[in-house]
Amino acid sequence: MVRLPLTVADIERGQRLGTLLRRARAERTLFETALTAGISPDTLRKIETGRVPTPAFATIAAIGSALGLSLDTLWEQISESDDSDLPRASGGPCAG
């Protein structure tokens, strides 16, 4: 299967996703969050730093659930061009 090159929009969206996840993680360690999500800490680190700008849907769903962020909230936040007002997670269960 041939992977298409990432667009500038894909890369920017990945950077916004990483910022959102870092902020939502707040006081939790990367290791704790990754284990709760069922992924490796290295994978979470790569997503948070934008090195994996287009992670798999299941990975995003697992991280969102671990951080108490619904998929709707994640999409709303990463689809916007301004990330200055990204919310912190409430710590509650994921609604989506």
Rank of each mutant, 00 (worst) to 15 (best):
M1R: 13
R3L: 15
V8H: 10
A9I: 12
A9C: 00
I11C: 07
G14A: 03
Q15F: 06
L17V: 06
G18M: 07
G18K: 03
G18S: 09
T19M: 11
L21D: 03
R23V: 12
A24N: 04
A24W: 09
A24I: 08
R25V: 10
A26P: 08
E27I: 07
T29I: 05
L30P: 09
L30K: 07
E32Y: 00
T33Y: 01
A34C: 11
L35T: 10
G38Q: 09
I39H: 06
S40I: 06
S40H: 13
P41L: 01
P41S: 02
T43L: 14
K46E: 08
I47Q: 06
I47H: 03
I47K: 02
I47D: 05
T49Y: 04
G50K: 02
R51H: 13
T54L: 12
A56E: 15
A58E: 15
T59R: 08
T59W: 03
A61H: 12
A62L: 10
G64N: 01
L71G: 14
D72N: 11
L74T: 08
W75I: 15
E76Y: 09
E76K: 11
S79L: 12
S79W: 07
E80P: 00
D82V: 01
D83V: 02
D85L: 10
P87H: 02
R88G: 09
S90K: 11
P93W: 01
